Computed example of a mutant assay.
Amino acid sequence: MARLSRIEYSEKEKEFLKSNCSMSRQELTDAFNERFGRNLSKGNISAMCKRNK
């Protein structure tokens, strides 16, 4: 079974997630993808938030 590749986040992206953690995960995902031109899933954003509290 192939391992999934790790998603890299810039410091600006990490700071955005940290400063907007009170948003619902779907709202945060939509805002993140729009702001940074990414196409991450709600699961990707949720996992990042859980890993970094």
Rank of each mutant, 00 (worst) to 15 (best):
Met1Tyr: 06
Met1Ser: 11
Met1Val: 04
Met1Phe: 08
Ala2Trp: 09
Ala2Asp: 12
Ala2Ile: 15
Ala2His: 10
Ala2Leu: 11
Arg3Met: 11
Arg3Asp: 12
Arg3Leu: 13
Arg3Glu: 14
Arg3Pro: 03
Arg3Ile: 06
Arg3Asn: 14
Leu4Thr: 12
Leu4Val: 12
Leu4Lys: 14
Leu4Cys: 06
Leu4Glu: 06
Leu4Trp: 04
Ser5Glu: 15
Ser5Met: 13
Ser5Lys: 13
Arg6Val: 06
Arg6Ser: 09
Arg6Phe: 06
Ile7Phe: 13
Ile7Asn: 11
Glu8Ala: 11
Glu8Asn: 12
Tyr9Asp: 07
Tyr9Trp: 15
Tyr9Ile: 06
Glu11Asp: 12
Glu11Gln: 14
Lys12Met: 07
Lys12Glu: 13
Glu13Ser: 14
Glu13Trp: 13
Glu13Cys: 14
Lys14Ile: 11
Lys14Asn: 14
Lys14His: 12
Glu15Ala: 12
Glu15Trp: 10
Glu15Leu: 14
Glu15His: 12
Phe16Trp: 05
Phe16His: 03
Phe16Thr: 01
Phe16Tyr: 13
Leu17Glu: 04
Leu17Gly: 04
Leu17Arg: 06
Leu17Tyr: 05
Lys18Leu: 14
Lys18Cys: 10
Lys18Val: 15
Lys18Asp: 15
Ser19Pro: 00
Ser19Arg: 15
Asn20Val: 08
Asn20Cys: 08
Asn20Ala: 05
Cys21Ser: 15
Cys21Phe: 09
Cys21Pro: 01
Cys21Ala: 14
Met23Glu: 05
Met23Thr: 04
Ser24Glu: 09
Ser24Lys: 15
Arg25Thr: 05
Arg25Trp: 04
Arg25Ser: 02
Arg25Ala: 00
Gln26Gly: 00
Gln26Pro: 01
Glu27Gly: 07
Leu28Arg: 02
Leu28Phe: 03
Leu28Ser: 01
Leu28Gln: 02
Thr29Ile: 07
Thr29Ala: 10
Thr29His: 04
Asp30Tyr: 08
Asp30His: 05
Asp30Phe: 05
Asp30Ile: 06
Ala31Trp: 05
Ala31Met: 08
Ala31Lys: 12
Ala31Thr: 03
Phe32Tyr: 14
Phe32Trp: 07
Phe32Ile: 02
Asn33His: 08
Asn33Arg: 10
Glu34Asn: 12
Glu34Ala: 12
Glu34Gln: 12
Arg35Asp: 00
Arg35Lys: 11
Arg35Leu: 03
Arg35Ser: 04
Arg35Ile: 01
Phe36Arg: 15
Phe36Ser: 13
Gly37Thr: 03
Arg38Leu: 02
Arg38Gly: 00
Arg38Tyr: 00
Arg38His: 02
Arg38Met: 04
Asn39Leu: 07
Asn39Cys: 07
Leu40Pro: 03
Leu40Gly: 01
Leu40Glu: 00
Ser41Thr: 12
Ser41Cys: 07
Lys42His: 02
Lys42Met: 07
Asn44Ala: 09
Asn44Pro: 01
Ile45Tyr: 00
Ile45Ser: 02
Ser46Ile: 00
Ser46Cys: 03
Ser46Trp: 05
Ser46Lys: 03
Ala47Phe: 09
Ala47Cys: 08
Ala47Gly: 09
Ala47Arg: 13
Ala47Ile: 06
Met48Leu: 09
Met48Ser: 07
Met48Glu: 11
Cys49Leu: 15
Cys49His: 03
Lys50Trp: 08
Lys50Val: 05
Lys50Ser: 12
Lys50Tyr: 11
Arg51Cys: 07
Arg51Ser: 11
Asn52Cys: 04
Lys53Pro: 00
Lys53Ile: 06
Lys53Asp: 15
